[in-house]
Write a protein that binds this DNA or RNA. Structure first.
Lengths: 217, 217
DNA sequence: GTCTATACAGGGATAGAC
DNA sequence: GTCTATCCCTGTATAGAC
């Protein structure tokens, strides 16, 4: 898909995609140079062009891959915190904190998302839609299903799972994302926890079930 | 501040800042060229460098100016909708819609905000802080004061005005900002209204006063 | 036969010179 | 206002090395 043939050794290709993720995430699409990516990967520039037709193809390829990986990582967090809920407020808060850390972790996954958001006007619409579908949209759908399940168990009173998932994400995540500029600047972990706590509190006031009162204190 | 002397005619300078806002907003910092800005302004490139020391100085200058202008525009919207409230739900919704349109309007103000967010890792921290203070932070403070006043009148039950302002912005604005990638892609006005309506509804469930029940229907 | 290293053509950018 | 010095980047080509 959008690569050049099947030639080349797989371990080289992996080193290239890994390096491209790092450099694109750090420098952004325009500033990142193919020389820097080749150096970061420890391969010659010719090898990079042997695996990927051009810079744009490489960027879009790692963007889609990264998006899918991040969705899977978030899926694991949902399974960890939202499948077997005992203390809903606490589990929602822990999930919110860990998701924010996962998505906005300084150098890794989140940084490429920032590069994509910066280049969105220059990305072909079909690729952008594929990126959305593999990433944010998929995560939102997963979360909606968990909320629907929790509603079925009487722990939440959610009418529209999609709306609830969107509002949960806005209240617990986007405040952190905005403050950190999608991972470009560090945010203190206490701040992440504060936002998650306040966000979950607000979320439960909107969608909380009968047993979701506020904690004492 | 951060410009080159006071030389040059004021109308030329205005044409340059206006052109720079347009081109930086459209192309982003790296892709925008000083040639394109000079052409857009209808002046020679020498004139641009006569007013602004270099590309970075020009960018940061228009960024700060744009941030302050947008804050003022939002301030006017607050005065229009939140000073003399008769129907709180409706006024909050109208404010949310107009603010989203103002900030994310395709080519004008909002586009530069996207360029700044993309370049945040390359902006000096003091300039970034000045930009935040003149823009998002100031607007948030203004909104917090309005919510506190509405609370004093018994129309809201807000404990922490800052928190309420942040949650209002998240619930009614950031969903649109994310969908449009901060104005890079168009969002249907029905979608903006839908998000504003659902966001205000959620906001009033969190912070609504005694008389803020949901509308019939 | 893939990889490394290096060099190079072509284009475009900034910033300054005339 | 045009012209240009200097630099950097993409993508290709030309060598040889495991």
């Amino acid at each position: 898909m959008a690569t050049t043939g099947g030639a080349g050794r797989p371990e080289k290709r992996k080193a290239i995609t890994r390096a491209a993720t790092t450099v694109f995430g750090r420098e952004g699409y325009v500033r990142a140079s193919m020389d820097a990516i080749a150096a970061e990967a420890g391969v010659s520039k010719r090898t990079v062009y042997n695996h990927f037709a051009d810079k744009e193809t490489l960027f879009l390829s790692v963007a889609l891959q990264n998006s899918a990986e991040l969705t899977e990582r978030i899926r694991e967090l949902m399974a960890k915190y939202l499948d077997r809920v005992v203390d809903l407020r606490r589990d929602l808060t822990d999930f919110a904190v860990e998701r924010a850390n996962a998505v906005l972790s300084a150098g890794e996954h989140g940084a490429l998302g920032r590069a994509i958001r910066a280049e969105v006007a220059n990305i072909p619409v079909d690729v952008l839609e594929a990126w959305l579908e593999a990433g944010p949209v998929a995560s939102q759908r997963d979360l909606a299903q968990h909320f629907a399940a929790l509603s079925g168990r009487g722990l939440l009173a959610v009418e529209d799972g999609e709306l609830a998932a969107e509002q949960f994400t806005l209240l617990t995540f986007h405040g952190v994302a905005e403050r950190s500029f999608w991972g470009a600047l560090p945010v203190a972990s206490e701040e992440v926890e504060r936002i998650a706590t306040a966000g979950v509190d607000a979320f439960l006031r909107i969608h909380g079930g009968p047993g979701a009162g506020r904690p004492a204190g």
